[in-house]
Design a protein around this nucleic acid. Structure first.
Lengths: 212, 212
DNA sequence: CGACACATGTAACACGTTACATGATTTG
DNA sequence: CAAATCATGTAACGTGTTACATGTGTCG
């Protein structure tokens, strides 16, 4: 639902036409989330279907303008007023992957972690470089300043969000490594214990044993 | 594509039936990402359509088993071997929202930030509480330990991922506040400047200045 | 002229998600 | 007996996403 609301927000500044919306959207989110032009039109027609926007005539140059409606404005304000739910967050592919990796036998978990770590570090460097250029006052990828003032600030904030998030991801991956090491230690100790007292009082570990 | 691969990973341990897959999936991701049973069946049939799984007969009790195929195993290993792309990350609703909020006039940006912050703090507390219970050895939400050993570890890792991510989000929100304060300062200075030299030689400031 | 940016759209698909229909078995 | 859990499935929808068709204007 992010694109819908994004377009709605842009239209709150006044009527726009499709191509323009794409340009302005990308001016704010930068090259990180390129928006296929086609999607603007599909989203726009869905917004119209739902009564949140309406056609607002043509330009002298033939541009098809759309304007936000009253209920569109309501919807938009509700969006701004309601925090995005961080309970029940969107499924995170990386988290699911690692959760599966540590469970399914035969997966080289450290390799998965390291591979991801390298990739995330690389991504972080890219973001940092972009931020440097943004602060140096260089043009955003995408050319001049469409989207008016504030677009630079928006782009900077988005970039920094990506940076913060990626840093957290890397920290988490490191944390996973320590957890895995702990786990290995425990399993080793358990194995030693089992060897010392084979068949002894192996008090019912819940289901399947760790080692077979 | 996370659910597809998740189920594939579970099936890599051996044939399972639908309901069982749901149980084991939730054992790993906890209550955070509840998985509608129906979705298991739809996903399963899509996996079958793509030749990644195949029906594997029935139980004595009538359970419809599915087994992973060779190409399913290939797909799964490719998944584990390929890091999830953090360049071109999934669109983040919060980032988009703030990017729009700072651009569209008439939005009380600090209010948006604070509202989200409160919500995220709350979510963080919930996660932390859950983690405490998990470490205390209490049962996961969902009852006993289905999913075998490692499921506890998986659930812990997922929880910690959520914690790391939420912390990063809060830090970012705080960071946004400082950025906004900076911005306000700049605008104030600019206004003052304009008042002092109205129409004067407002010498083309090369974009925003760092300090005003 | 050819390539490229501007501009508008449509068709089709994938995935996730919900709601519904249905029935067996267990448990209070 | 009623309610809950186990169990399998289908129908339908929404959003995001891509690929394609089409046409204008501009610039080297």
């Amino acid at each position: 639902m992010s694109i819908r609301h994004g377009l709605l927000a842009l239209l709150d500044q006044g009527p726009r036409y499709g191509y323009q919306l794409r340009t302005e959207f990308e001016a704010r989110t930068g090259a990180t989330w390129p928006l296929n032009v086609g999607q603007v039109y599909t989203t726009l027609s869905r917004l119209e279907r739902d009564g949140l926007v309406e056609p607002a005539g043509e330009d002298e140059e033939g541009h098809q303008f759309y304007a936000i409606t009253a209920s569109g404005r309501d919807e938009l304000h509700a969006w701004f007023d309601t925090p995005v739910p961080r309970t029940n967050p969107p499924r995170d592919e990386l988290a699911i992957k690692l959760a599966m990796a540590v469970t399914v036998p035969g997966v080289d978990v450290p390799a998965v972690v390291q591979g991801q770590r390298r990739h995330s570090i690389k991504a972080l460097q890219d973001y940092t470089r972009l931020k440097g250029r943004a602060l140096a006052g260089e043009a955003r990828p995408g050319g001049g300043q469409p989207g008016g003032p504030g677009a630079d600030l928006a782009w900077l904030l988005v970039l920094e969000q990506l940076i913060f998030q990626t840093e957290a991801e890397i920290r988490w991956l490191d944390h996973c490594e320590t957890r895995l090491a702990q786990q290995a230690e425990i399993e080793q100790a358990r194995a030693a214990e089992a060897a010392a007292a084979p068949e002894g009082g192996t008090r019912r570990i819940g289901r399947r044993r760790t080692r077979a």
